[in-house]
Structure formats: C-alpha cells, structure tokens
Design a protein around this nucleic acid. Structure first.
Lengths: 247, 247
DNA sequence: CGTCAACAGATTTTCGAAAATTCGTTTGAT
DNA sequence: ATCAAACGAATTTTCGAAAATCTGTTGACG
C-alpha cells in the first residue's frame, strides 16, 4: 500500500495556499466582499500566480469566493437573505445526516461522540474568545463534535455537503463575534443533542439540532442587522499591510 | 434585467476549458478513472497549462475530478457504492427542493413547468439516442424540465446542491447508455410528476419523484454490474495510438 | 537471485514575463 | 458644457520555460 505522505512534507504550494486562504476567509481576516488582488495575495502567501489562482478557483467552486471574468476575485458577500437560506438548508441537510447517523451508529460512534463532547466541554472552560475572535482551539473542537454527531451517517455525499454548509455558517458566526457580540454559551445544548442521539431518539435529536441552529441564526442575524456595513458594498479595498506568513 | 454577455465574446480561456472538460466527463468521452495528462489536455483543448489546471481544480471541488498531489488529475472513479450513495442523497435533496417549490410556486412557475414538459415530450419523439449516445438536445430538455420542477424552491443553496448531484447522476446514466442498454422511455413518468406538482399534491409528487430516481438507479446499477470494467482500475492508460499494428 | 541505490525519462508543479482586458482620466468635437 | 473616443496605468489572464517530483529500469552488491 502506498504510504500516505504526512501533509506539510511534500505538500504542493496550491494546497497550502488553499488552506490558508480558506482559513482567512472563514475567520474573516479577509472580509466579505473584499476584493482579492492577485499581487497582494502573491505577497501575502508567498507564491506565484499559478498556485494562487488554482486555490481561488477551487474556493470559487466551494462558494466562498466569487469570480467575475476579467475582473478578478472577491470574497463571497454576505447578506441577510443568504444567511437565512444557508441556515434553513443546513437544518434540512443536518437533519437527514443526523437521522441516518443515529440509525446506523455503532458503539464506536457512541464512543467517539462522547470523547468529542468531553473535549469540547473542557475546551470551553478556557477562555473561549478574546478580542473579538473565537479561539481556534474551541472552534476546532466544536467542528469535531458536530462531525462526530453525523459521522455514522454512511453517506460521503451528505457529509461533504454538510461540511460545506457548516463552514459557511462558521464564517457568519465569526463575523458576528467580531462585532463584539459575545458568543453564546451552548455547552448544555450540545450535551442535550448528544444525549438524544445516544438514546437513539431521532425525533428529539433532530428537534434539538434544529433549535440549536435556529438560535445561532437568530443571534447572527441580529448582529448582522446592527452592522449593515458587513453586507454592504465594502468598497473599502483594505490594502493589507505586509503581513508575515499565516501559521 | 441585466443582459448577460453572450458567451464566446469575452469569455476567458479557463471558463471555456472548464465547460468543455466538464461536458466531456459527464458524457463519458473522458472515461471514469481515466488519467488526465496535462500535455494531452493541452493539445486537446488548445490552451496553456494555467487555464487547464484552473479548470481542473474547479472540477476537483465539484467532485468529478480527483487530484493526487504531484501525480496529477483523474476523472472521478465510479462504483456501485458511490452510485447508491449519490442516488439516495439525490432523493433526499430533491424531495426538499420539490416540496418547497410546490409550496412556493407561482403561476409563472406552473407556466414554465408546462412549457418545459412540452419541449421535453416533443423532443423525445425524435431519435433520442444513436450509437450509444444520448442526444444532447434531449439531455438538455430533460435537465431543464427537472430544473423547472424545483425552480420555485426559493433556495439558491438547495438548487446548487441539487444541480451538482443531478449532473453526477447524468454521468452514470451516460455510462449506462454507452453499454448498449437502451434508455427507458419515461415521458409518462415525467408527466405524472408534473401533474402532481401542479395539483400541489406534495406527498404524491415526492413519491413519484423518488420512484423516478429509484428506477433510474436500478437500471444504471444493473448495467454497471454487467460492465465491471467501468468501476474497475482502468489501469489501461489509453496510450494514444502511436503503436504500429503488430506484424 | 533478490534488494536497493542511482539514474533517466516522463510528468506535474511553479515561476516570471508577455498579452489581454478593464478602469479612470484626459482630450477633442459638437 | 456635454458626450464620447482614446490614451495610459493597473490588473487580470495566458503562455512557455524552468524546477521539482514521480516512475520505471539498470546495474552493483550482498
């Protein structure tokens, strides 16, 4: 069997750039609707035109970057409408994936889920946010927990879709946190969802999950409304200063 | 209404190449799992490295091309498992989209749907296939009809997902047709679905649509099993004939 | 014989220059 | 003064050469 190379060893440039740009967009270090000038990106990510354009094309397909022919790339815009669309779709997709996962889940799934929750709840005891930023560690555990919930759904397709929507939602949440709105403490919510899933109570788990997403939606929508500049033109072409390599 | 630029006018190269390669893959002119050598693509699509790689990266995100670091691109493989996964997911996604569409649909939606069906049913009277190929015209009308069904669903997200799954399914169907299995005549099925949708009978429309997809699944799965070479290694690296005839 | 290092050819990946396009401003005609 | 053509700078897009990586083969050595 071909031994999988450890990432970072012989990782191609476009793969590294892809990860970095995506991370910067999801965490709103590159703001919604911000113009992505190639020259600036070339400096920021230390690469030539090709790897950067390749990464951007991929992100365009993922839907967090937009391309206008011969006019270049932008970070995908945000809006109240697309937020609602996103969250409503997310509810439906997660419902299906979660149902299948609960129906299929093995003991191993239960174990992984418990473990993920344990890590999440402990992480949240530490400072979860500072200076309008979600701590990357908490963010990671949170993502892992939600992944663990649906992990047994046994459908690559649904998992991929779910992940993509989850990531887009994360960007809205990051935006919301940035505008000095405190993240809500939802450890208890997560625990309830997990309990319902472990009890194989599909109806209850789906309801709780739906409410979980809806509460996030409400909070984000509110902070979006009080900061209309986020969904506005953002004509401000933030010339980013010389920034050292991210991570 | 902003008038869309006629394509072919100031279309960038990577956009043209993207469309062409995608089309070739969906119609299995580039076979599943086939290696995509850049040099060959460069000749075939008359472009430099950059536009081709950019197109391939985008297709990779769409999931019909696979990339292995430093080893290049391949057409995404097919398999019984991913076919079932795809079709099952498609049923769920289309169910949601169709429900919303029926609940939201205006008179304009009804009109468009009727028009699309009319075009489809007439198209099918012509020769629908020839020499193991679905006629592109029929294919287009078919795609348009299914689009018209869900068009009123009012969720860009769900529509995009649905379209992507539909396209992947199309590739499997093309594969099935190629192996001299006749396409089934499903005009009546389409009409029934439409009638249910127009009658705003959500339950019936969803059931019919599910059965429609399942019938396609059965047919494609059968022909996939009788042609195991499609889902197999395809190690045959179609060295384009520069080998002289033996003896 | 079998293993492994080193090499050569093929292929992918990256770079930087050149071509094409857009955008903002100026110029010139009415 | 108004409008539109036209120029030039900024930016995107494309090309082809160069670098890096992979693959398969050869030949030395245990």
């Amino acid at each position: 069997m071909p031994h999988q190379q450890i990432e970072g060893d012989t990782q191609t440039l476009h793969a590294r750039v892809l990860t970095q740009i995506r991370d910067d967009i999801v965490n709103c270090r590159l703001m919604p609707n911000e113009r992505l000038r190639l020259e600036a990106l070339r400096v920021r990510y230390q690469a030539g035109w090709s790897p950067i354009r390749e990464a951007l094309m991929r992100l365009e397909a993922e839907g967090i970057v937009q391309l206008e022919q011969n006019k270049g790339f932008r970070v995908a815009a945000v809006s109240r409408d697309s937020l609602f669309d996103l969250m409503q779709s997310r509810i439906e997709i997660e419902s299906i994936a979660l149902r299948w996962s609960i129906e299929n889940g093995s003991v191993g799934w239960e174990a992984d889920l418990l473990a993920a929750f344990h890590r999440l709840s402990n992480q949240s005891k530490l400072r979860r946010w500072q200076s309008g930023m979600i701590s990357p560690e908490w963010s990671k555990e949170h993502r892992t927990f939600h992944q663990a919930l649906v992990a047994a759904c046994n459908s690559r397709t649904m998992l991929t879709i779910r992940e993509s929507l989850f990531e887009k939602a994360e960007r809205y949440v990051a935006l919301s946190i940035m505008s000095k709105s405190q993240p809500r403490n939802d450890v208890a919510e997560h625990e309830q969802i997990m309990q319902a899933a472990l009890a194989r109570n599909v109806t209850r788990a789906l309801t709780l999950n739906r409410e979980h997403i809806q509460r996030t939606l409400n909070k984000v929508a509110k902070s979006l409304e009080s900061h209309p500049e986020f969904s506005r033109p953002a004509a401000v072409t933030a010339r980013y200063a010389r920034m050292p390599l991210a991570g």
